[in-house]
């Protein structure tokens, strides 16, 4: 599995947040690799838009299953190593983190309409 470049997806996510006025965001994590949004709506919208740009966003559990890692190892890549991008919103009792599994080539779609 080819890892997604953190810079590329972070760049895309921030542009989406600005374009759609999704509110404030915070970059944290060891590599600035965790992008935290302020609401679930903003987070879900950003996830959807990243999917439209070709990123397959999954939960750490799904990423673990696809990559042969444990969920704890995936979270470690996000929280401790900073090697995996995550889109996050703080929540209680529900999954508030997704990570990119892979990127689908969508060159035929051309630039996204504004």
């Amino acid at each position: 599995m080819t890892p997604i470049a953190t810079d590329d997806i972070r760049n895309s996510a921030v542009r989406i947040i600005i374009r759609l006025a999704l509110g404030n965001y915070l970059l944290r994590g060891p590599g600035g690799n965790i992008l935290e949004l302020e609401s679930r709506v903003a987070w879900a919208t950003a996830v959807n838009e990243l999917q439209n740009e070709g990123y397959l966003m999954v939960t750490p559990q799904e990423y673990a299953a696809a990559s042969g890692l444990t969920e704890a190892e995936v979270v470690e890549q996000v929280e401790d190593e900073g090697s995996l991008f995550a889109l996050f919103f703080p929540s209680e009792g529900e999954q508030g983190m997704v990570v990119p599994l892979e990127r689908e080539v969508k060159e035929h779609l051309g630039p996204l309409p504004l």
């Binding site: 542009r15 374009r19 630039p111 504004l114």
Partner: peptide
């Protein structure tokens, strides 16, 4: 809009 220019600059 600034956001539209940002998209254009990205491309």
């Amino acid at each position: 809009t600034p956001a539209a220019l940002l998209e254009r600059l990205h491309r």
